[in-house]
């Protein structure tokens, strides 16, 4: 993908046309393209299979961390100054279970958000590889190809409603930067 210096944005209003084009494009492994749609599409999932998302590990790790803190912190505070209250023993595990459970969920949710932001490369504003109509009701592709392949791409995308091509100034203008 070294000299990919032309970016192509294809916008489809008609879903069948979009899927047919996708079938063709998906066979080209070297294309690092974004398939953009206003809603999650399962057909895309099937055509471009992806690994199960890494967000899961964030949640798992966050949960475990919350659980450990939920137990360690109360026990530390109680042992720091062991004040006796009522008939309960100084280290009351039953009470700390509830604290641990709450922190498990709190850290779990927080790390899930971090995981999502990390994996989906948010909150990076990458709106140049994007078109306003994608948030309406149209689907489309955004990818970059070297100069010579433009017309080949064009006839693949010929029944798209709109195709926008523009030269990329620098080499680094990669499109599919959220590859993971």
């Amino acid at each position: 993908m070294n000299n990919a210096n032309v970016r192509i944005k294809a916008i489809y209003n008609n879903y069948e046309a979009f899927i047919n084009a996708l079938k063709v494009l998906s066979s080209k492994k070297e294309l690092d393209m974004d398939v953009i749609s206003p809603m999650p599409l399962h057909d895309v999932e099937k055509l471009i299979p992806q690994k199960p998302s890494g967000v899961r590990w964030f949640t798992f790790f966050g949960g475990i961390l919350g659980l450990i803190i939920g137990f360690a912190f109360p026990i530390y505070t109680v042992l720091d100054w062991p004040l006796i209250t009522g008939g309960k023993p100084v280290v009351t595990i039953q009470a700390f279970i509830i604290i641990a459970f709450e922190l498990l969920i709190l850290f779990g949710a927080a790390f899930t958000l971090l995981g999502l932001l990390f994996h989906a490369r948010l909150p990076r504003q990458n709106l140049s590889n994007y078109d306003v109509r994608f948030s309406g009701n149209s689907f489309g592709f955004v990818f970059s190809v070297p100069e010579r392949k433009i017309n080949e791409m064009k006839n693949i995308l010929q029944d798209a409603d709109d195709i926008i091509t523009d030269k990329l100034s620098t080499e680094s203008g990669r499109i599919g930067n959220e590859s993971r």
Binding site: D34, E45, Q50, S53, G54, I105, N129
Partner: peptide, 27 residues
């Protein structure tokens, strides 16, 4: 937060949303 609706973002978003729902229920 810079959402573009690419298929990768949808993929991670769906997992995250599922996990949130999974955490929120016992909560």
């Amino acid at each position: 937060m810079g959402w573009r609706g690419t298929h990768r973002q949808w993929h991670h978003y769906e997992t995250a949303y599922l996990l949130f729902a999974a955490l929120a229920t016992p909560l």
